[in-house]
Structures are given as C-alpha cells and as structure tokens.
C-alpha cells in the first residue's frame, strides 16, 4: 500500500513548504479541513489554514469525531481533509476501521508524524510510536504516502482524487515540519 518518499526528500536537511502543501490541498478541491492541532504541522500548515477563509477550518476535540464529520461531508459530495497527529490516528483506529474501511468512504487523513527524525523513513525511526504507523495501515489495508520533502508534494492531489474516485481512505504522512 505504501508509496514511499522520493530519494531527495530523505535528506535530513531537505525541506518541505507549508505553502506548497496548502496549494495542493486547495487544488484537490478540499472545502473543509477538520483538525486537532498536531505539533509537526502546527505552524507550517494549521496556522496559515486557520487564517484563510477557505478551506473552512473545523476545530474538533478528538480525532475520531473528525472521521464522522468527514464521512457526513463525503455523502454530501463535499471534500474534506482530516489534519491530525499520528497519536490521534492511533486513538481513532476503531472509527477508521468502521467508517472509512468497512463502509468504504473517502476519508482523507493528513497525519503529522510526531518526533520522527527528518529524512528517516518512518519504519526506521527510533520512535516506537512512529515505527508502528505504517504496519498498522498495512494491516488495515489503507493506502498511504510519505510526504517528506517538496518532491513528494505532487503526490497529494492524485492521492486525494483517487480516494474520492475509489471511495477509499488514504493517509498522507507528513514526515517533517513544513516551513
């Protein structure tokens, strides 16, 4: 299920711009961003998204709420993105299992990998909480993509388009703090 980060993006001193990710989110026709703040994406993504008028930001109390909200929006034909931390993803496994996987709904999740070392593949991280994410997604049959550097940003729009075309969930793993 994995599509890994491109080679250049694996450099520890690589870079990732929040503005380019946001441009992809907008190009993907995302109308709602549903979020619990995440340390990795707080400054580079969530703060500028909060200052914009579109997409509309819905702040939620807990990540599994967001799975339900995005499902309801999907039935209405409105695209949304759940922007969370991997701790929140782990906390929401049952909701993702029931709503996204078993009901086959296009729940698109952008997940900041808390404490992942820049340039290090998630499964090679020294952090247990990072290493287990991709194996769990594999076990659940959920497609995911590593977004580690600018070269990976063009994966975002096709991943979201495909999720909606196939009515399947997708996870975009943000591997370093976007500037």
């Amino acid at each position: 299920m994995q599509q890994g980060a491109s080679v250049d993006s694996r450099k520890p001193d690589g870079y990732l711009h929040g503005s380019s990710i946001i441009a992809e989110i907008k190009a993907s026709q995302i109308e709602f961003v549903v979020s619990v703040p995440d340390i990795t994406t707080s400054e580079g993504l969530l703060r500028p998204l909060a200052q914009a008028t579109a997409p509309r930001l819905i702040r939620i109390c807990k990540e599994d709420e967001g799975v339900g909200i995005c499902a309801g929006l999907a039935y209405t034909g409105r695209r949304s993105l759940l922007l969370i931390q991997q701790t929140g993803l782990l906390d929401s496994i049952n909701a993702v299992r029931g709503v996204a996987v078993e009901y086959a709904l296009p729940i698109c999740m952008m997940v900041g990998l808390l404490e992942k070392e820049p340039g290090v593949p998630p499964m090679q991280s020294k952090r247990y909480g990072v290493r287990i994410v991709e194996p769990i997604l594999d076990a659940m049959g959920i497609a995911y993509h590593e977004i580690e550097g600018e070269a990976d940003v063009p994966k975002i729009r096709p991943a979201i388009d495909n999720a909606y075309a196939q009515s399947r969930p997708v996870v975009l793993l943000i591997g370093r703090k976007p500037s």
Partner: peptide
Amino acid sequence: SSHALGLALG
C-alpha cells in the same frame, strides 16, 4: 453526532 455535523455542514 459527528456524522450529523458533517451532513449539516455539507
């Protein structure tokens, strides 16, 4: 209630 919020917004 969360599904409902998504539907209400959409």
